[in-house]
Each structure stands twice: as C-alpha cells, then as structure tokens.
C-alpha cells in the first residue's frame, strides 16, 4: 500500500529530476516552443516541495491535490495548468484514504490524464504530454517499471510527429524531427514514480 509519505517522496523525486533535466527540457522547448519549459517546471516543482514541507498533508490525495495547486499557481506556462490538473484530478480521485493500492493509483492517474485531455483538447498523436502519459497509464497495470518504459518510449515516439496543439503547432511540418518537451517531462514524472516505488520495494 502507498501512503502520503510515498506520494511526497514521488513529488520530491520528480522535483530533483526536473532540476537535473531542466536544461535539456528548455533546449527541447527552444527547438519548437518558447524555451521556458525547463525553468517553468523547475519553479513549479520547487514550489511543490516547499509547500509539502510546510503543510505536510497526511493523505495521498491531499499530497497530489496540494502539488497540483502549486503547479497551477507557479509554473507560468501551459504546463502549469496541465500538470496541475493531472495531479489535482488524481488527488481528488484518491479521496481521503490514508493508503491506496496500485490499482487505485492507476485509476486515479487515468482520471488525471482524462482531465488533461479535456482541458487541453489534445489526443494521442498530437505531439504532447498525452503521448507519454496515456501509454504510461495503460502500462501501469503491468507494474511501475512497465509504466516508465512506456512513458519513455511514448516521449521518444513524438519525434516524427507533427504538432497539433500548443505553440509548436504553429510550426506545422517544421515541428517534425524534434522530441516534444511536454512528453519528455511527463516521462520524467513517471520515471520518478517508478524510482520511488522501486526504492519502496513495490
């Protein structure tokens, strides 16, 4: 079972990963976006870890809801409301339970991803974070490692796609040949989840 501390460690691991990879995310974003994805997410996840340290929410749902709220408030780019919605919807789906199982987590993340698709209007194949998140959630039934692999493969598979959402879509065919920064950061988020689960012995 996964408790609030597990979810706090997941968010902390995600923040550390975003810190490590911020330059790469921004470099990917400078090719087809506005070159701020790494620094935006860095600011957002620093706010997440600071809020979790301060408030220490005591249920998995509350950890994710608070984290999502911080991302919406602090990121400053489209990834803020999108990741914020992902975490907040997932948090709401987990409710007030003190501990949740892997199946509940998978169902909650599914609800989160559905919320992101509704908010941004993106579908699989549009060269967005959805291209990493949907395969990851699909694979979660087979375990955390499978979800990480699926997210990373999904992110890499955005390279030949033409962007159909967001600023990159204005580039038309010129968006082809670049890996999507949002799908890349989504893969980091899922990898942080898998790392946390492995360290937990799940």
């Amino acid at each position: 079972m996964l408790d609030a501390d597990f979810f706090r460690r997941w968010m902390t691991a995600a923040a550390a990963s975003v810190d490590r990879e911020a330059e790469r995310l921004t470099a990917l974003d400078s090719a087809i976006g506005d070159a701020d994805h790494g620094s935006n997410l860095q600011r957002g996840f620093r706010a997440v870890t600071a809020a979790l340290d301060k408030d220490a929410p005591d249920t998995p749902g509350a950890v994710l809801t608070l984290s999502g709220r911080q991302l919406i408030s602090t990121v400053g780019g489209a990834s803020g409301p999108l990741y914020g919605t992902l975490l907040r919807r997932a948090g709401k789906a987990l409710g007030d339970a003190a501990e949740v199982g892997e199946e509940e987590l998978a169902a909650a993340l599914r609800a989160g991803v559905d919320g992101v698709m509704k908010l941004g209007g993106a579908a699989p194949g549009d060269k967005t974070m959805i291209d990493a998140l949907v395969p990851a959630v699909d694979a979660l039934a087979s375990g955390f490692a499978a979800a990480r692999t699926a997210a990373e493969e999904g992110a890499r598979a955005t390279t030949p796609l033409q962007a159909r959402k967001g600023r990159a879509s204005y580039l038309g065919e010129r968006s082809i040949g670049h890996q999507d920064p949002g799908a890349t950061s989504s893969a980091l988020l899922i990898a942080a989840l898998a790392d946390t689960a492995e360290a937990n012995g799940e």
Binding site: T85, G166, R167
Partner: peptide, 14 residues
C-alpha cells in the same frame, strides 16, 4: 492564448 486560457479553465475547475 495558450496558458492564459488553460490557467483560467484550471482555476474555474478548482
């Protein structure tokens, strides 16, 4: 556009 639209929608959903 973009994040302006999404941020308002996310705040309304809150």
């Amino acid at each position: 556009l973009g994040s302006a639209v999404l941020t308002v929608k996310a705040l309304l959903a809150e």
